[in-house]
């Protein structure tokens, strides 16, 4: 008990010396200054290297000084906090870089005329031309794929969670897992072999939708399944005890409760396939002109457009590829934001 914390007036043992904000800023300035000196005195060069060296110097200096002033535990805390923050930044860095690069490159060509014109009769070196046909193609193909995959996937998930008891459920579940890892080109090849070669259909947006639906299906099933599983059984029982049949319980009690999560899963699945290129190469084929009808004839799509233009040895074509990539990213971004908004407002009330 003699060891109990002494609280001395004005100099409490509970209060430790602390590095002030200003002092930390001074350390940072020092680190940058030292790095400058290093870069001048030695053959080190480059912005990335500069930032890295400065950051490492700052963290080391901060830890050492903190160890002296604040004590071991506080120094450790500062070190680990720094490492965690650096890791978090490093994780979003590639994303921000890709996004920023695309915005810079893409905004050069991106304007209203680019969005409302097609590539019909446009040569690769021509500065005009646009992606209207590709936007329409992508929206139609992804929309159709969603219409195919979402109801189907939801029914599978409902079967797995609410109805299956035995072997069939386990088998279905296993194949859904395997399908999750299906390379997208294989989905395209499969539809190419089945729909176009064996059944003699033409290239079309719909053929692409079939391939995309195959890719969406496992994601939709998995996410919906997980969401349905976490709906508490007490809600199902509460409904049964009111004399409500099982299917009404599933449709009116269980699904609404899980809705937010299911919508998020569906949106992620859509976002994932919107950028797919490989399966569309073999099924949609690509088309410089506008084809509104997804059920007949080759169509364009944004990923195919990017792929095609980026492969041309010409500055204007490559610029068009960047602009199309930017539009593609924006579409996916809008879908993601929509998913978040829906997830917030749908379903469980609070």
């Amino acid at each position: 008990m003699a060891q109990a914390v002494e609280v001395k007036a004005g100099n409490s043992r509970l209060i430790r010396a602390q590095l002030s904000r200003r002092f930390l800023a001074a350390i940072a300035a020092g680190a940058i200054a030292v790095t400058f000196a290093l870069f001048i005195a030695t053959p080190l060069h480059g912005l990335v290297g500069f930032v890295l060296v400065a950051a490492v110097l700052y963290v080391v200096a901060q830890t050492v000084i903190s160890n002296v002033v604040e004590g071991r535990r506080a120094a450790m805390n500062r070190l680990v906090t720094s490492v965690v923050v650096v890791c978090a930044c490093a994780a979003v860095l590639p994303l921000v870089a890709v996004l920023g690069f695309t915005v810079i490159k893409g905004s050069a060509v991106l304007d209203l005329s680019f969005l409302t014109h097609t590539m019909r009769g446009v040569a690769e070196q021509d500065p005009y031309g646009g992606i209207y046909h590709a936007i329409i193609g992508t929206l139609e193909q992804v929309g159709l794929a969603t219409l195919l995959a979402v109801p189907f996937g939801l029914l599978v998930a409902i079967y797995l969670v609410e109805y299956s008891t035995g072997r069939l459920g386990r088998i279905v579940s296993f194949f859904v897992d395997v399908m999750t890892g299906l390379p997208s080109i294989v989905a395209g090849l499969f539809i190419f072999a089945l729909w176009i070669l064996a059944l003699g259909q033409s290239f079309s947006g719909f053929a692409g939708s079939l391939a995309l639906a195959i890719l969406m299906l496992p994601t939709v099933v998995r996410s919906a399944e997980e969401m349905l599983k976490i709906v508490p059984d007490s809600l199902r029982e509460g409904s049964y005890a009111l004399g409500i049949p099982k299917w009404v319980t599933v449709v009116r009690i269980v699904l609404p409760t899980a809705l937010a999560g299911i919508v998020t899963g569906v949106m992620l699945a859509i976002a994932r396939v919107t950028g797919e290129t490989a399966p569309l190469l073999l099924t949609v084929f690509g088309n410089p002109a506008l084809n509104f009808n997804p059920f007949s004839g080759a169509q364009a799509s944004l990923p195919l457009f990017v792929f095609g233009e980026a492969g041309l040895p010409n500055e204007t074509a490559i610029n068009r590829a960047w602009a199309a990539a930017l539009v593609l990213i924006l579409i996916v971004l809008v879908l993601n934001i929509m998913a978040r908004v829906i997830a917030r407002f749908a379903g469980v009330r609070s």
Partner: peptide
């Protein structure tokens, strides 16, 4: 069983109001 439960109602040990309603 649905008909049985229409005739025989139940209140549970832990309250379970439907969260979406």
């Amino acid at each position: 069983p649905v008909e049985v439960r229409r005739a025989v109602g139940m209140v549970f040990q832990r309250p379970n109001p439907f969260p979406t309603m």
